[in-house]
Design a protein around this nucleic acid. Sequence first.
DNA 1: CGCGTTTACGTCGTTCGTAACGATA
DNA 2: TATCGTTACGAACGACGTAAACGCG
Lengths: 331, 331
Amino acid sequence: MTLVQLRYFITIVDSGLNITVAAKKVHATQSSLSKQIKQLEDELGFLLFTRRARSLTALTPAATRVLEHARPLLAHAGNIRALSQNLRRETEGELHIATTHTQARHVLPSMLARLKRSYPKVAMHLAPGGDGESLARLARGEADLAIVSSSGVPPQADIRLPLFHWERVVLVPARHRLTRLGRPLQLEDLSHYPLVSYESSRERTSSLQRAFDAAGLTPQIAMTARDADLIATYVRNGLGIGVVAEMAVDAVGGDDLVVLPSEHLLPTCTTWLLLRRDRLLRDHTVDLIAQMLPGADARSVRRAIEAASDEVAPVVPHWRDPDNPFVRRNR
Amino acid sequence: MTLVQLRYFITIVDSGLNITVAAKKVHATQSSLSKQIKQLEDELGFLLFTRRARSLTALTPAATRVLEHARPLLAHAGNIRALSQNLRRETEGELHIATTHTQARHVLPSMLARLKRSYPKVAMHLAPGGDGESLARLARGEADLAIVSSSGVPPQADIRLPLFHWERVVLVPARHRLTRLGRPLQLEDLSHYPLVSYESSRERTSSLQRAFDAAGLTPQIAMTARDADLIATYVRNGLGIGVVAEMAVDAVGGDDLVVLPSEHLLPTCTTWLLLRRDRLLRDHTVDLIAQMLPGADARSVRRAIEAASDEVAPVVPHWRDPDNPFVRRNR
DNA sequence: CGCGTTTACGTCGTTCGTAACGATA
DNA sequence: TATCGTTACGAACGACGTAAACGCG
């Protein structure tokens, strides 16, 4: 049993039991992987895969139990390597972030740009997806960190750091009837119009749905999209009125749309930074996190992660546009 | 970085930074270990040991951090091997038990004999020591399980299974004045005589000391020893009166000693079986534990360990001599 | 016949143990 | 001088990639 054999094993599993694609991932030949797996099977005394003819069809029950130990084992090996790279001030590395389009488009750019200036050789990878998908990526170890939003209960993860609060805003065409209400917007007003919002708002448990439910109303979700640009476009074209994150407001620009505050209608959201307890972070990752948490430096971040506490930034700020930090909209 | 290198590294650390003795432990030559460590250091980019001339003097700070990951890493590797051996019904293996002399001499023999009949090829190793020492052995991974006793708070360990309760008894020479009291023994009676008991009773926090303290008395500990045989011998020779575990009574035998109950004077003790959460147990170890817990089978033991609950045997029995299960003394 | 796994084979790199060396107490 | 870590060297083992063989769909 070697670290290489276990890594091959896990890679094959994560490649859908396809040795060929696994071989490409680890930069080796199929032949090597096939042989190493056979050797591992010989040593363990049982088969890891059920094979039909010449293809792998499934994991054996024993293999799944091996997997439960092999994954944390390799995680520790990765931690030792990360430790080594941190100590030797290695400037190369990778950073995989799982997050939503909203964060990737409106929150992360300036932070990642700063990170890239500090660590030019670090390859950064953004994996867009829904909140649940991002959590799953983190859990599978495909991402080093996940950034997701929620209102109410915080998402489930080893380490949760609240980054900021934010509100949703309503987007209506200029000269829309709702711009001339002469009073604060009410949920009932919204219920009379088709809505264009994020995909997540389709879920029964979304905070938008729940807010309407609580008021005894039913929203008409006319269309959903992943990003505010698309939503704004469809609002312009008269498909309905938009509900987007305030972070996206400056990107939807133009005089033909009007932004109406809605924090009195929909619950405040919190954006969380999520980490795995079992992963040792590279210095560049810690620096990125310190940038995201105002008033935190690398040391306090490491301390907070060790303690697994949320107390890096005891008071969670509201969202501010890092490019226009003195402008405070929609309040 | 290989599993072998990490194992060599850990073995050297656990051998007091002596490569030569570490080499013997892993059945290899000093040369190999020295080379492998150097290679590991090259790959990590920093030294693991500080060297003075030609000897290892200390771990570097970085090495201690590597150690924190290397130990659980190798634990997982060991678990995979244990899994393999369980599945292939491997009958060979080792079993390291850290416990006190009392348990090893009076409680374990019949159980280990039964285990040996079921698994003749398993090599069993008893590491005698005080309760604290046994806990340390378990924590360092030198023992697969520890068996220790305490009254009051249970000992600190990942998994705690209470095995049985037991009382202490007082050992006096036949025709001793205390045998003719005509009333139950009191602590004050004991305080008038020099006591011969276990080494642990010397500690301020021992339950014997605390019982005397609570009564406003001070015991005269005349002599301590590790086992009841020795204690009985010294009692016979008039050095004092003995305080021993009831499990040892049948071994101190002879008409020249009288056993006086003392459960109304000293608190009841509980014997605990302690396990590490991160170690996967071999089948023979589970079988041994199942034997120790009356009414538990291997499956229920595994389930209890998974759940880390003490609920294998909801009601903890009092000690019974497995060779004379129907005799109930001192009650 | 393409796809994917397994097997065969020659080459290369690595690890092993023996043994000599250097340095210390 | 005994002990302990490092270095040198030859032998053996093992892993790698190329390439051919094999079974399905």
